[in-house]
């Protein structure tokens, strides 16, 4: 029986005549190739991403010497975080995030709805205009806005003076620097949010709108009563993503405000604090503790978002 079907399999390529052995070897081939194909990624993620997390947990409990030695210090790195300076950078990060999320996402939603108007002319142009900051490297954006915000020669103050208004020290006045930077944060992320939200709007069935139009609902009314609830899962996704990214803000602050600026302490975000302690002051154990606190912050705020979404996201 076995020999017979084996011969048949040899002669014909019909699937019915595969022998048990051949099926076994195909199955083993599948298993073997499965492991081979995932191997680089699994090993790479393990070595460079997952194991380092365990390593960071360990580092956070140690004091790292400059030449590689380390000593166990327990939770003292975490205790050292209880300073006004770290508290301030926590506040800075949360303030920046609040503006980028609660101003940026609604603005992007309104713009995305406008861009989704049927038969809108110049749509491609508008979409491209909003998108260009997304493909601009944040370092270049920081350089650009530092120049625009410049107290003496920046175009923003020049325009204000032209209208007879007093300018401001946008990024060196400690009281407003964070807001100035957060505006840039909104400016540079709005295009990305628009694309995601517009994709969500595309999926709203046209007959929702047609039915509402028959009932005499105008564009604004339809935006609030139909579009917003239909895209609420997309809005939730965009909000979570924008929040996670904003909590990790670093580049634009690094480029826009120097560490000698009077506003520096009032804008310094957690990741800057992490970079500074880990790689400038070479206090790796403390930096690891900062990173862990940041992770806990991100995880818990994301958790809160998931909990709140039950109240506003329509499924």
């Amino acid at each position: 029986m076995n020999t017979h079907s084996g011969l048949a399999a040899g002669r014909s390529r019909s699937p019915r005549s595969f022998s048990a052995r051949k099926v076994m070897s195909i199955r083993q081939g599948e298993i073997m190739w499965g492991y081979i194909l995932i191997a680089p990624t699994v090993i790479g993620l393990g070595v460079f991403y997952l194991w380092p997390v365990v390593q960071t947990l360990y580092i956070s409990m140690t004091k790292q010497g400059p030449f590689g030695g380390s000593s166990w210090v327990g939770i003292s790195n975490f205790e050292r975080l209880a300073t006004p300076e770290f508290g301030q950078s926590l506040l800075n990060t949360l303030g920046y995030t609040a503006i980028v999320v609660f101003l940026g996402v609604p603005v992007a939603t309104v713009l995305a709805a406008m861009l989704s108007t049927t038969k809108l002319r110049f749509r491609v142009f508008y979409r491209a205009a909003f998108f260009i900051p997304v493909i601009t490297l944040p370092a270049a954006i920081g350089v650009l806005w530092r120049w625009i915000y410049n107290t003496d020669y920046g175009i923003l103050n020049q325009i204000l003076r032209f209208f007879g208004l007093n300018g401001s020290s946008w990024i060196s006045d400690p009281n407003i620097a964070l807001y100035s930077i957060a505006m840039v944060g909104v400016w540079m992320t709005v295009g990305y949010n628009i694309v995601i939200i517009a994709a969500g709007i595309q999926e709203v069935p046209a007959w929702y709108h047609e039915a509402a139009m028959l009932d005499g609902a105008g564009a604004v009314r339809r935006f609030f009563s139909i579009t917003l609830s239909a895209i609420s899962p997309t809005l939730f996704f965009v909000t979570v993503l924008a929040m996670i990214k904003a909590l990790q803000v670093f580049d634009i602050v690094y480029l826009m405000v120097g560490d000698t600026s009077p506003a520096f302490d009032r804008v310094k975000p957690i990741v800057y604090y992490f970079y500074q302690s880990g790689f400038i002051e070479n206090d790796k154990g403390f930096a690891a503790a900062v990173a862990i606190v940041l992770f806990i912050l991100i995880a818990s705020l994301t958790g809160v978002q998931f909990w709140i979404q039950k109240k506003w996201v329509q499924r």
Partner: peptide
């Protein structure tokens, strides 16, 4: 995982 959590260790590698 936010990058800050593995960057220290990646640097040491």
């Amino acid at each position: 995982i936010p990058p800050e959590l593995f960057i220290l260790s990646q640097y040491q590698i």
